[in-house]
Protein backbone atom coordinates (compact mmCIF):
# COMPACT_ATOMS: atom_id res chain seq x y z
CA UNK A 1 0.00 0.00 0.00
CA UNK A 2 2.64 2.47 0.98
CA UNK A 3 4.74 1.50 -2.03
CA UNK A 4 1.82 2.26 -4.34
CA UNK A 5 1.13 5.53 -2.60
CA UNK A 6 4.77 6.46 -2.80
CA UNK A 7 4.75 5.66 -6.49
CA UNK A 8 1.74 7.87 -7.11
CA UNK A 9 3.32 10.61 -5.15
CA UNK A 10 6.42 10.39 -7.29
CA UNK A 11 4.36 10.36 -10.48
CA UNK A 12 2.62 13.56 -9.40
CA UNK A 13 5.89 15.29 -8.70
CA UNK A 14 7.29 14.15 -12.03
CA UNK A 15 4.17 15.35 -13.85
CA UNK A 16 4.43 18.77 -12.24
CA UNK A 17 8.08 18.93 -13.25
CA UNK A 18 7.10 18.26 -16.87
CA UNK A 19 4.41 20.91 -16.69
CA UNK A 20 6.63 23.48 -15.02
CA UNK A 21 8.32 25.15 -18.04
CA UNK A 22 5.13 25.64 -20.04
CA UNK A 23 3.20 26.68 -16.93
CA UNK A 24 5.78 29.25 -15.95
CA UNK A 25 5.69 30.91 -19.38
CA UNK A 26 1.89 30.77 -19.51
CA UNK A 27 1.56 32.22 -16.03
CA UNK A 28 3.88 35.14 -16.71
CA UNK A 29 2.83 35.89 -20.29
CA UNK A 30 -0.77 34.68 -20.43
CA UNK A 31 -2.70 34.38 -17.21
CA UNK A 32 -1.16 37.19 -15.20
CA UNK A 33 -1.46 39.64 -18.13
CA UNK A 34 -5.15 38.86 -18.61
CA UNK A 35 -5.74 40.02 -15.03
CA UNK A 36 -3.18 42.79 -15.20
CA UNK A 37 -4.77 44.25 -18.34
CA UNK A 38 -8.09 44.48 -16.57
CA UNK A 39 -6.47 46.24 -13.62
CA UNK A 40 -4.54 48.65 -15.84
CA UNK A 41 -7.74 49.60 -17.64
CA UNK A 42 -9.15 51.11 -14.40
CA UNK A 43 -6.24 53.57 -14.12
CA UNK A 44 -4.98 56.43 -16.21
CA UNK A 45 -1.54 55.07 -17.06
CA UNK A 46 0.40 56.32 -20.05
CA UNK A 47 3.90 55.24 -20.97
CA UNK A 48 5.05 58.86 -20.84
CA UNK A 49 3.71 59.87 -17.41
CA UNK A 50 5.88 59.29 -14.32
CA UNK A 51 4.79 56.08 -12.54
CA UNK A 52 4.08 57.92 -9.28
CA UNK A 53 1.08 59.79 -10.66
CA UNK A 54 -1.20 56.85 -11.22
CA UNK A 55 -4.87 57.43 -10.45
CA UNK A 56 -7.67 54.96 -10.10
CA UNK A 57 -10.46 56.21 -12.31
CA UNK A 58 -12.86 53.27 -12.37
CA UNK A 59 -14.74 52.77 -15.59
CA UNK A 60 -13.87 56.18 -17.01
CA UNK A 61 -11.74 54.71 -19.80
CA UNK A 62 -14.62 52.51 -20.93
CA UNK A 63 -17.03 55.44 -20.82
CA UNK A 64 -14.65 57.53 -22.84
CA UNK A 65 -14.22 54.80 -25.45
CA UNK A 66 -17.90 54.13 -25.98
CA UNK A 67 -19.38 57.61 -25.57
CA UNK A 68 -16.84 60.24 -26.50
CA UNK A 69 -14.28 58.63 -28.82
CA UNK A 70 -15.97 58.88 -32.21
CA UNK A 71 -12.99 57.22 -33.89
CA UNK A 72 -13.32 54.16 -31.71
CA UNK A 73 -17.02 53.87 -32.44
CA UNK A 74 -16.17 54.13 -36.12
CA UNK A 75 -13.60 51.37 -35.68
CA UNK A 76 -16.25 49.10 -34.15
CA UNK A 77 -18.38 49.69 -37.23
CA UNK A 78 -15.41 48.94 -39.44
CA UNK A 79 -14.68 45.70 -37.58
CA UNK A 80 -18.27 44.53 -37.75
CA UNK A 81 -18.58 45.45 -41.43
CA UNK A 82 -15.30 43.74 -42.20
CA UNK A 83 -16.53 40.52 -40.56
CA UNK A 84 -20.01 40.63 -42.07
CA UNK A 85 -18.71 41.09 -45.58
CA UNK A 86 -15.65 38.83 -45.49
CA UNK A 87 -16.74 35.76 -43.52
CA UNK A 88 -19.85 34.56 -45.43
CA UNK A 89 -18.36 35.19 -48.87
CA UNK A 90 -15.17 33.37 -47.95
CA UNK A 91 -17.14 30.45 -46.59
CA UNK A 92 -19.34 30.24 -49.69
CA UNK A 93 -16.52 30.56 -52.22
CA UNK A 94 -14.23 28.12 -50.44
CA UNK A 95 -17.04 25.57 -50.16
CA UNK A 96 -17.65 25.99 -53.86
CA UNK A 97 -13.95 25.51 -54.62
CA UNK A 98 -13.81 22.44 -52.37
CA UNK A 99 -16.82 20.90 -54.09
CA UNK A 100 -15.35 21.56 -57.53
CA UNK A 101 -12.10 19.91 -56.43
CA UNK A 102 -13.97 16.97 -54.92
CA UNK A 103 -14.98 15.75 -58.41
CA UNK A 104 -13.17 13.38 -60.74
CA UNK A 105 -10.97 15.90 -62.47
CA UNK A 106 -7.37 16.03 -63.54
CA UNK A 107 -4.94 18.48 -61.99
CA UNK A 108 -6.46 18.49 -58.52
CA UNK A 109 -3.11 18.89 -56.81
CA UNK A 110 -2.28 21.78 -59.12
CA UNK A 111 -5.48 23.69 -58.37
CA UNK A 112 -5.24 22.94 -54.67
CA UNK A 113 -1.72 24.35 -54.52
CA UNK A 114 -2.65 27.50 -56.45
CA UNK A 115 -5.68 28.16 -54.25
CA UNK A 116 -3.74 27.53 -51.07
CA UNK A 117 -0.66 29.57 -51.96
CA UNK A 118 -2.01 32.96 -50.75
CA UNK A 119 -2.59 31.57 -47.28
CA UNK A 120 1.01 30.39 -47.02
CA UNK A 121 2.54 33.69 -48.03
CA UNK A 122 2.86 36.38 -45.41
CA UNK A 123 0.20 39.00 -44.74
CA UNK A 124 2.62 41.92 -44.89
CA UNK A 125 3.88 40.97 -48.35
CA UNK A 126 0.35 40.25 -49.56
CA UNK A 127 -0.86 43.63 -48.33
CA UNK A 128 2.01 45.41 -50.06
CA UNK A 129 1.27 43.63 -53.35
CA UNK A 130 -2.46 44.43 -53.11
CA UNK A 131 -1.64 48.02 -52.33
CA UNK A 132 -0.07 48.13 -55.76
CA UNK A 133 -2.94 46.12 -57.29
CA UNK A 134 -5.34 48.83 -56.04
CA UNK A 135 -3.14 51.71 -57.21
CA UNK A 136 -5.38 54.41 -58.63
CA UNK A 137 -3.40 54.99 -61.80
CA UNK A 138 -1.25 51.94 -62.42
CA UNK A 139 -2.98 49.13 -60.53
CA UNK A 140 -4.26 45.99 -62.20
CA UNK A 141 -7.62 46.24 -60.43
CA UNK A 142 -8.48 49.29 -62.50
CA UNK A 143 -6.90 47.69 -65.55
CA UNK A 144 -9.15 44.65 -65.17
CA UNK A 145 -12.19 46.93 -64.83
CA UNK A 146 -11.15 48.77 -67.98
CA UNK A 147 -10.61 45.59 -70.00
CA UNK A 148 -13.94 44.11 -68.95
CA UNK A 149 -15.83 47.31 -69.71
CA UNK A 150 -14.23 47.67 -73.12
CA UNK A 151 -15.17 44.11 -73.96
CA UNK A 152 -18.84 44.92 -73.37
CA UNK A 153 -20.61 45.62 -76.66
CA UNK A 154 -22.67 48.47 -75.20
CA UNK A 155 -19.67 50.22 -73.72
CA UNK A 156 -18.99 53.81 -74.75
CA UNK A 157 -16.81 56.65 -73.52
CA UNK A 158 -14.16 56.50 -70.81
CA UNK A 159 -14.25 53.31 -68.75
CA UNK A 160 -15.14 53.78 -65.09
CA UNK A 161 -12.31 53.22 -62.65
CA UNK A 162 -12.25 53.35 -58.85
CA UNK A 163 -10.03 54.96 -56.25
CA UNK A 164 -10.22 51.68 -54.23
CA UNK A 165 -8.33 52.19 -50.97
CA UNK A 166 -8.86 55.95 -51.11
CA UNK A 167 -12.62 55.80 -51.70
CA UNK A 168 -14.73 56.85 -48.70
CA UNK A 169 -18.13 56.28 -50.33
CA UNK A 170 -20.17 53.22 -49.42
CA UNK A 171 -20.28 50.33 -51.86
CA UNK A 172 -24.08 50.18 -52.11
CA UNK A 173 -24.20 53.90 -52.63
CA UNK A 174 -21.63 53.63 -55.45
CA UNK A 175 -22.74 50.47 -57.18
CA UNK A 176 -26.46 50.45 -56.59
CA UNK A 177 -28.10 53.71 -55.55
CA UNK A 178 -26.03 56.18 -57.55
CA UNK A 179 -26.37 54.38 -60.91
CA UNK A 180 -30.12 54.10 -60.27
CA UNK A 181 -30.32 57.80 -59.46
CA UNK A 182 -31.63 57.26 -55.92
CA UNK A 183 -30.43 59.83 -53.43
CA UNK A 184 -30.15 58.50 -49.91
CA UNK A 185 -31.28 60.29 -46.75
CA UNK A 186 -28.49 61.21 -44.34
CA UNK A 187 -28.83 59.03 -41.26
CA UNK A 188 -27.27 60.21 -37.99
CA UNK A 189 -23.61 59.38 -37.40
CA UNK A 190 -22.21 56.02 -38.33
CA UNK A 191 -25.60 54.41 -38.83
CA UNK A 192 -25.40 56.06 -42.23
CA UNK A 193 -23.34 53.06 -43.27
CA UNK A 194 -26.33 50.74 -42.94
CA UNK A 195 -27.83 52.10 -46.15
CA UNK A 196 -24.72 53.15 -47.97
CA UNK A 197 -22.67 50.08 -47.12
CA UNK A 198 -19.07 49.99 -45.93
CA UNK A 199 -16.65 52.24 -47.75
CA UNK A 200 -15.11 50.87 -50.91
CA UNK A 201 -11.77 51.30 -49.13
CA UNK A 202 -12.78 48.77 -46.49
CA UNK A 203 -14.38 46.53 -49.08
CA UNK A 204 -11.12 46.46 -51.03
CA UNK A 205 -9.44 45.02 -47.95
CA UNK A 206 -12.31 42.56 -47.62
CA UNK A 207 -11.60 41.36 -51.17
CA UNK A 208 -7.95 40.83 -50.27
CA UNK A 209 -8.93 38.87 -47.17
CA UNK A 210 -11.28 36.66 -49.14
CA UNK A 211 -8.57 36.05 -51.70
CA UNK A 212 -6.15 35.05 -48.98
CA UNK A 213 -8.39 32.80 -46.88
CA UNK A 214 -10.24 30.83 -49.58
CA UNK A 215 -7.49 28.21 -49.84
CA UNK A 216 -7.31 27.62 -46.10
CA UNK A 217 -11.06 27.12 -45.72
CA UNK A 218 -11.10 25.04 -48.88
CA UNK A 219 -8.61 22.52 -47.46
CA UNK A 220 -10.72 22.08 -44.33
CA UNK A 221 -13.94 21.77 -46.35
CA UNK A 222 -12.25 19.23 -48.64
CA UNK A 223 -11.34 17.07 -45.66
CA UNK A 224 -14.95 17.36 -44.46
CA UNK A 225 -16.33 16.42 -47.87
CA UNK A 226 -14.09 13.38 -48.12
CA UNK A 227 -15.40 12.28 -44.73
CA UNK A 228 -18.96 12.04 -46.01
CA UNK A 229 -19.99 8.46 -46.68
CA UNK A 230 -20.34 7.91 -50.45
CA UNK A 231 -23.30 5.59 -49.95
CA UNK A 232 -25.47 8.60 -49.10
CA UNK A 233 -25.02 9.87 -52.64
CA UNK A 234 -25.51 6.45 -54.18
CA UNK A 235 -28.83 6.13 -52.38
CA UNK A 236 -29.83 9.61 -53.56
CA UNK A 237 -28.88 8.69 -57.13
CA UNK A 238 -31.17 5.69 -57.01
CA UNK A 239 -33.98 7.97 -55.86
CA UNK A 240 -33.22 10.26 -58.78
CA UNK A 241 -32.19 13.31 -56.74
CA UNK A 242 -30.93 16.38 -58.58
CA UNK A 243 -27.48 17.79 -57.72
CA UNK A 244 -29.24 20.70 -56.03
CA UNK A 245 -31.27 18.39 -53.79
CA UNK A 246 -28.18 16.30 -53.03
CA UNK A 247 -26.33 19.40 -51.89
CA UNK A 248 -29.04 20.69 -49.55
CA UNK A 249 -30.09 17.37 -48.09
CA UNK A 250 -26.77 15.50 -47.89
CA UNK A 251 -23.69 17.66 -48.31
CA UNK A 252 -24.76 20.74 -46.40
CA UNK A 253 -26.17 19.04 -43.27
CA UNK A 254 -23.33 16.54 -43.01
CA UNK A 255 -20.80 19.30 -43.46
CA UNK A 256 -22.40 21.57 -40.88
CA UNK A 257 -19.95 20.81 -38.02
CA UNK A 258 -17.05 21.88 -40.25
CA UNK A 259 -18.93 24.95 -41.46
CA UNK A 260 -19.81 25.95 -37.94
CA UNK A 261 -16.24 25.51 -36.75
CA UNK A 262 -15.00 27.68 -39.62
CA UNK A 263 -17.67 30.29 -38.97
CA UNK A 264 -16.68 30.67 -35.32
CA UNK A 265 -12.94 30.67 -35.99
CA UNK A 266 -13.14 33.10 -38.88
CA UNK A 267 -15.40 35.52 -37.00
CA UNK A 268 -12.94 35.60 -34.10
CA UNK A 269 -10.05 36.15 -36.51
CA UNK A 270 -11.92 38.87 -38.40
CA UNK A 271 -12.55 40.74 -35.16
CA UNK A 272 -8.84 40.57 -34.31
CA UNK A 273 -7.60 41.67 -37.75
CA UNK A 274 -4.89 44.30 -37.89
CA UNK A 275 -2.12 43.65 -40.40
CA UNK A 276 -3.81 44.24 -43.78
CA UNK A 277 -5.38 47.53 -42.65
CA UNK A 278 -2.16 48.70 -41.07
CA UNK A 279 -0.14 48.08 -44.25
CA UNK A 280 -2.71 49.11 -46.85
CA UNK A 281 -4.10 52.18 -45.06
CA UNK A 282 -1.55 53.21 -42.41
CA UNK A 283 -3.56 56.33 -41.54
CA UNK A 284 -6.81 54.44 -41.00
CA UNK A 285 -8.22 55.03 -44.46
CA UNK A 286 -10.48 57.78 -45.77
CA UNK A 287 -12.59 59.16 -42.88
CA UNK A 288 -10.95 56.54 -40.64
CA UNK A 289 -13.15 54.13 -42.56
CA UNK A 290 -10.85 51.09 -42.65
CA UNK A 291 -9.37 51.11 -39.13
CA UNK A 292 -10.49 48.07 -37.13
CA UNK A 293 -10.60 47.98 -33.33
CA UNK A 294 -7.10 46.54 -32.91
CA UNK A 295 -5.77 49.29 -35.15
CA UNK A 296 -7.34 51.94 -32.94
CA UNK A 297 -5.99 50.17 -29.89
CA UNK A 298 -2.48 50.21 -31.36
CA UNK A 299 -2.85 53.88 -32.23
CA UNK A 300 -3.99 54.81 -28.72
CA UNK A 301 -1.56 52.65 -26.79
CA UNK A 302 1.62 52.70 -28.78
CA UNK A 303 1.69 55.99 -30.69
CA UNK A 304 1.05 59.60 -29.77
CA UNK A 305 0.27 59.80 -26.05
CA UNK A 306 0.95 56.08 -25.40
CA UNK A 307 -2.24 55.74 -23.37
CA UNK A 308 -1.71 52.23 -22.06
CA UNK A 309 -4.74 52.18 -19.79
CA UNK A 310 -7.05 53.38 -22.50
CA UNK A 311 -5.71 50.77 -24.92
CA UNK A 312 -6.23 48.07 -22.27
CA UNK A 313 -9.84 49.14 -21.93
CA UNK A 314 -10.23 48.93 -25.71
CA UNK A 315 -8.70 45.44 -25.68
CA UNK A 316 -11.20 44.37 -23.04
CA UNK A 317 -14.11 45.76 -25.02
CA UNK A 318 -12.87 43.70 -27.97
CA UNK A 319 -12.60 40.59 -25.77
CA UNK A 320 -16.09 41.13 -24.48
CA UNK A 321 -17.47 41.47 -27.99
CA UNK A 322 -15.73 38.29 -29.15
CA UNK A 323 -17.03 36.40 -26.12
CA UNK A 324 -20.59 37.55 -26.72
CA UNK A 325 -20.35 36.81 -30.44
CA UNK A 326 -19.05 33.29 -29.84
CA UNK A 327 -21.69 32.55 -27.22
CA UNK A 328 -24.48 33.87 -29.43
CA UNK A 329 -23.27 31.79 -32.35
CA UNK A 330 -23.17 28.75 -30.12
CA UNK A 331 -26.67 29.40 -28.91
CA UNK A 332 -28.31 30.25 -32.23
CA UNK A 333 -26.45 28.10 -34.72
CA UNK A 334 -24.55 25.56 -32.66
CA UNK A 335 -27.74 23.73 -31.77
CA UNK A 336 -28.74 23.21 -35.37
CA UNK A 337 -25.41 21.65 -36.27
CA UNK A 338 -25.77 17.95 -36.96
CA UNK A 339 -23.00 15.91 -35.47
CA UNK A 340 -22.35 12.35 -36.51
CA UNK A 341 -22.99 10.82 -39.89
Amino acid sequence: MSILENRRHRETIEAYAYLAPATLVLLVFWFAPVVLALLVSFFDATALAPPGELNFIGLAQYKRALFTDAEFVRSIWNTVNYSIYSVPVTLALSLLAAMLLNTQIRGRAFFRTIFFLPYVTTWVAIAIVWNYVYHREFGIANWLLTVVQQAMPWHSGEPVTFAWLAEPRGIWEMLLFEPLGISLPQLPGDSDQVLRGPSLALFSIVITTIWRDIGYFMIIFLAGLQNIDKSNYEAADIDGATPWQKFWSITFPLLSPVTFFLLVISCINAFKEFTPMFIMTPDGGPDYGTAPMVFHMYNSGFTGQWELSYASALAYILTFMILVLTLVQNRLIGRKVEYGT
Partner: peptide, 10 residues
Protein backbone atom coordinates in the same frame (compact mmCIF):
# COMPACT_ATOMS: atom_id res chain seq x y z
CA UNK B 1 -11.58 32.76 -26.20
CA UNK B 2 -9.32 35.57 -25.01
CA UNK B 3 -7.73 37.41 -27.94
CA UNK B 4 -3.97 37.82 -27.75
CA UNK B 5 -4.41 41.60 -28.11
CA UNK B 6 -5.37 41.83 -24.44
CA UNK B 7 -1.88 40.63 -23.54
CA UNK B 8 -0.04 43.28 -25.54
CA UNK B 9 0.01 46.04 -22.95
CA UNK B 10 0.72 44.02 -19.78
Amino acid sequence: MVPGQVLLIP
